[in-house]
Design a protein around this nucleic acid. Structure first.
Length: 491
RNA sequence: GGGCCGCUAGCUCAAUGGCAGAGCACCUGCCUUUUAAGCAGGGAGUUGAAGGUUCGAGUCCUUCGCGGCUCACCA
């Protein structure tokens, strides 16, 4: 609903009304276009388009300079910008006056004419005829300062995109990155699949879900928090390599690296273990960087980072010991570990479980220092309910997380395929849930039944695509790599 | 949820508690190779919202809304 119109909106409305009164459609259904702007420019520069050969271009008018009986303007389409030159004697009085009177910055315009080079050296279209293609009713932001207000940039992303080419570039990179991931996995024989987003039982991660309801079946449903349990069912079904790229939903706070819905890649490879998955991971990330950026050396927030494999492997226990002096193996109880953390001045939740305390040590003391790519390995079983135990270490699982630029970007493990062990872990989590842990997994009987049919030894992997995009586009906030990030509603 | 910062014209930003301004954009006029075109003139505001203090509030106080950063939880 338009509220009160500004003076500029009233002017544009009046122009559109005037055109309609003259029988002209400000939004015609078709236009003439023989070349993109990039094609016209390159064709002219390499001689393929002759000086007397007319081209028809279409795009948005982004600048106008009127100098009496001649004018310059810039036209922008998805491929670039080019200057237009309008002359009264070439166009005729009516067409030239209409150009001056009917057009505004932001309008879409089609222009036909020949190419020439101005005396300042700019390739320019000498316009012979032009047509309004779509009237813009709202003025563009400042042509020099652009749109800076972060809130407006996110709420009205279309304005951000149309005025800030760098922002457009980020999302092109994001799309290429996802395409490169698919090429990498496809070339290794992975099958891309789709699993339910609406799930009767959620699972596969420690997170609070969104709830919804299916009215005809009168059934409560959850938006998925991960793909894991469904993808593993597919391994039971006989597919040996599967992956899914899609949206996960977690009912938690927003931050510079969290959005309630985010894009995840998960893959599962039968007969692989977590060591094999580490090798795949470092190759995959390096491949994507090569494909998208042409280099494995990236700059992220003042850091020069080399993504080339192999990445160092470091046991989580050693990493925490080196950064804090705390060996959590020496503190087998939550209370003891809590006291040790207090002793080094750490501020943690007193009633946290031992696993959560270890996780806090990782996040607070280790993660920020992992700038160069690093795999931390061998996590506590207690915080890894779907990962296989490390032989000979009953409290530890074969799990790793990958860190780059001080951020966790992926999480993977040798998948637990022992149905009895899995059932025991679900039961233990049921106790956690009863004790008030809102992020504990609920029991998934059908998943257990699937495991009882037999799942091959499997390596599994999950990665936040948004965070990888942040790294490869050097963006400090996840909102800069999500087209329409979650914001609180106004009013 | 806590702390800090911000919200003024379409956009980018000013304004000791004392007449709400500038640049871009817009409107009128001049201008046939300009490019942040230029020159002359003009219009444009519920200063995020609501209260309060004051002779007087964009400015000070309170509450609220939205955003950013940051801490706590997560990927």
């Amino acid at each position: 609903m338009p509220e009160t119109l500004t003076d500029q909106e009233l002017v544009r409305r009046a122009k559109a009304q005037r055109l309609r009164a003259q029988g002209q459609d400000p939004y015609p259904p078709r236009c003439e276009r023989t070349h993109t702007i990039a094609e016209a420019r390159h064709g002219y520069e390499n001689g393929e388009i002759a000086n007397n050969h007319a081209v028809s271009l279409a795009g948005r008018l982004i600048s106008i300079r009127i100098m009496g009986r001649a004018s310059f303007a810039h036209l922008e389409d998805g491929t670039g910008r080019i200057q237009l030159f309008f002359r009264k004697d070439a166009l005729g009085d009516a067409s030239y006056e209409a150009f001056k009177g009917d057009l505004d910055l932001g309008d879409f315009v089609g222009a036909t004419g020949t190419l020439f080079t101005t005396k300042t050296g700019e390739v320019t279209v000498s316009v012979e005829r032009w047509q309004l293609l779509a009237k813009a009713m709202h003025p563009l932001p400042d042509k020099w300062h652009g749109l800076k207000d972060v809130e407006t940039r996110y709420r009205q992303r279309y304005v951000d995109l149309l005025v800030n080419p760098d922002v457009r570039r980020v999302f092109v990179t994001r799309a290429r990155l996802i395409a490169a991931l698919r090429r990498f996995l496809d070339s290794r024989g992975f099958l891309e699949v789709e699993t339910p987003i609406l799930q009767p039982i959620y699972g596969g991660a420690a997170a609070k879900p969104f709830m919804t309801h299916h009215n005809p079946l009168d059934q409560d449903l959850y938006l998925r928090i991960s793909f894991e349990l469904y993808l593993k069912r597919l391994l039971v079904g006989g597919y040996e390599r599967v992956y899914e790229i899609g949206r996960d939903f977690r009912n938690e706070g927003v931050s510079f690296k969290h959005n309630p819905e985010f894009t995840q890649l998960e893959f599962y490879q039968a007969y692989a273990d977590y060591n094999e998955v580490m090798r795949i991971t470092e190759e995959m990330i390096a491949y994507v960087a090569d494909e998208v950026l042409g280099t494995r050396r990236i700059t992220y927030q003042e850091h020069e980072i080399d993504l080339s494999p192999p990445w160092p492997r470091l046991a989580l226990r050693r990493a925490i010991l080196e950064r804090t002096g705390i060996d959590y193996d020496q503190h087998p109880t939550a209370e003891g570990l809590y006291q040790a953390i207090r002793a080094i001045g750490g501020n943690v939740e007193p009633k946290a479980t031992r696993g959560k305390l270890i996780d806090a040590l990782l996040s607070n003391y280790v993660e920020p220092h992992l700038i160069q790519p690093t795999f931390l390995t061998d996590y506590p079983l207690e915080v890894s309910p779907l990962a296989k135990m490390k032989p000979g270490h009953p409290d530890t699982v074969e799990r790793f997380e990958g860190f780059v630029g001080g951020m966790e970007i992926c999480n993977a493990f040798s998948e637990l395929n022992d149905p009895e062990d899995q059932e025991a872990r679900f039961i233990a989590m049921g106790r956690d849930a009863a004790a008030g842990d809102e992020e504990a997994h609920p029991m998934d009987d059908d998943f257990l039944r699937a495991l009882r049919y037999g799942m091959p030894p499997t390596g599994g992997f999950g990665m936040g695509i948004d965070r990888l995009t942040m790294l490869l586009t050097n963006q400090a906030s996840i909102r800069e790599v999500i087209l329409f990030p979650h914001l609180r509603s106004k009013e």
